[in-house]
Amino acid sequence: MISINPFTEISAFIPAIVMQVYVVAMFLLVIGATLFDVVHKKSAKYFFNNSVKAKKSATRNVGSSEKASIAFKTATNEVLTSSEFCSTRRRLAHLLTMYGFLIFVTATVVMIFLYPATSSITPSVWPLAWHLGAAMLAVGGYWFWFFIRVDVAAEGNKWYKVMRADLFVLSLLAMSTFALIWSFFQSNGVVVWQTLFFGLFIGSSTVLFGGVLWSKFAHMFYKPAAAFQKRVTKADGSRENLPEPADLPEQFGLGIKREAPHHY
């Protein structure tokens, strides 16, 4: 199962070009919807206004080399290692989900575009990465949803109470879960069930990438920008006169209502 490229197997029924067009369409949906989200919710304007306020309140100038260093620290700490999470469990769940998603999507793109036909031989590393990424995504997502979901502690909601902001994590979980089940039935030659779960996999993927305007998907792009701005304002001395970059107004779509931090 984990050594088989599932997209090569299904290419006998679905032409490779169809799968490739689908991937490109999902990519364009994410880019287009994110840009629309930035304009519609005025997120870029918010960051720009905060930057202007910071410059007026700054006590020292931050040069380009220092900003490059800050950008590197932001990438390695807040982005790559999620050091802003005070809870170890929350941080691990986030990292599992994030890296699982990146591995899964990368392997999907490689297998669909480089090894799409039944006659092509896919290096075993890519099917292995695809299944590993889906498993990491599922483990991290389910761990978060059932055990450390933020709004359970902050607002008293149960795991089964779904809100619009939950569309992102639920579609992630559905995509990874259906992908693994589809691969399992495909490797065992169960045609009816593999067809069903392939359809569910495509459906959940479409909801994930096509639902950017109604989910927290765009949060992935805002978060590094907010973290970078936070570090810059701290470096130039204006931090104490500005609101926390993470405390963006709710209309900017950065998720659920802010509450006092909880330690798990």
Results as ranks from 00 to 15, higher is better:
M1L: 10
M1R: 10
M1E: 13
I2Y: 08
N5S: 13
P6D: 07
F7H: 01
T8P: 08
S11Q: 08
S11G: 09
S11W: 08
I14H: 02
P15Q: 07
A16L: 02
A16N: 04
I17F: 08
I17K: 11
V18D: 06
Q20C: 04
Q20F: 05
Q20V: 08
V21H: 05
Y22C: 06
Y22R: 05
Y22H: 04
Y22A: 12
V24P: 00
I31Y: 03
G32W: 05
A33L: 09
A33F: 07
L35R: 07
L35P: 01
V39I: 02
H40I: 05
K41D: 03
K42C: 13
A44Y: 10
K45V: 14
F47E: 01
F48H: 14
N49D: 15
A54L: 08
K56Y: 10
A58W: 05
A58L: 03
T59L: 09
T59H: 11
T59W: 06
E66W: 04
A68G: 09
S69D: 13
S69W: 00
A71C: 03
F72P: 02
K73H: 10
T74A: 07
A75F: 14
N77Y: 12
V79F: 11
V79A: 14
E84D: 15
F85H: 05
F85Q: 13
L96E: 09
T97W: 10
M98W: 12
M98H: 15
M98R: 14
G100L: 03
V105R: 01
V109Q: 00
V110N: 00
Y115S: 01
S119Q: 09
S120E: 14
S120K: 12
T122F: 13
V125R: 05
V125Y: 04
H131F: 05
L132K: 05
L132W: 07
G133M: 10
A138P: 06
G141T: 09
Y142K: 01
W143K: 04
W145K: 03
I148W: 08
V150S: 15
A153V: 12
A153P: 05
A154V: 11
G156K: 01
G156S: 04
G156I: 02
K161A: 07
V162S: 04
R164Q: 15
D166E: 08
D166K: 00
M175Y: 08
M175D: 11
M175E: 03
T177L: 11
F178D: 11
F178H: 09
F185S: 07
F185M: 02
F185G: 06
Q186R: 11
S187H: 12
G189F: 01
V191T: 13
W193V: 09
Q194M: 14
Q194Y: 09
F198H: 14
S204C: 01
T206V: 10
V207P: 01
F209E: 00
G211N: 02
V212N: 00
S215C: 00
F217C: 00
F217T: 06
A218T: 03
H219C: 00
F221R: 10
P224T: 08
F228M: 12
Q229N: 15
Q229K: 13
K230Q: 14
T233Q: 13
A235W: 07
A235G: 12
S238E: 01
E240T: 15
L242R: 12
P243R: 12
D247G: 11
L248M: 06
P249W: 14
P249N: 15
G255C: 08
I256A: 14
R258E: 03
R258N: 05
E259I: 07
E259D: 13
P261W: 11
P261D: 14
Y264C: 13
